[in-house]
Design a protein around this nucleic acid. Structure first.
Length: 149
DNA sequence: GCCAACGTTGGC
DNA sequence: GCCAACGTTGGC
């Protein structure tokens, strides 16, 4: 899951109440569907810093709620306000994400160096999704080879 | 339903 | 700040 560290960084997450954040603001249907239809409580998350000096995986988190309506879609003064969304028929959903640990940053350049990760969804050319599934094989490779405890 | 115009993402 | 890539909008 991508987050701009200027918005919510891995350290910000560690310092929030319950070390938890609602993953608000997703306005892409595919990304929404991943949260709404596929994420389950306890699912592990790679917390990725995007749109910053050194983009890459900055930590591990976990899904701590199932999806529920994103509150920002109803807030007129929010940049995420959606005039077509109503309480009865919300359009946008988010899960809660809880901090697990910070890791030594695995940069995007580093991720691209490993052929074992070349089909990782987040690394595909033209990918603009802020949320992408991680293949178990890729997950295990990252855990085993790119993260030291 | 097509598609041009526009907006957004995000690496560089 | 640039720009490639892609999603969305809306006129027709």
């Amino acid at each position: 899951m991508k987050s701009e560290p200027s918005d919510v960084s891995i350290d910000d997450l560690a310092n929030l109440p319950d070390q938890t954040v609602a993953w608000y603001g997703v306005r892409n249907y595919q990304a929404r569907n991943f949260m709404r239809d596929q994420m389950r409580i306890g699912d592990a998350v790679l917390f990725y810093h995007s749109n910053c000096a050194v983009p890459g995986i900055a930590g591990i988190a976990r899904v701590s709620s199932t999806a529920y309506p994103d509150a920002t879609q109803f807030k007129r003064n929010s940049k995420y306000f959606d005039p077509k969304a109503t309480q009865e028929t919300p359009r946008w959903f988010n899960v809660d994400v809880q901090w697990v640990k910070k890791i030594e940053l695995i940069s995007l350049a580093e991720l691209r160096r490993h052929p074992q990760l070349e089909s990782m969804r987040v690394l595909q050319r033209g990918n603009r999704l802020s949320i992408t599934p991680v293949d178990p094989t890729e997950w295990r490779f990252i855990l085993k080879h790119l993260i030291r405890d």
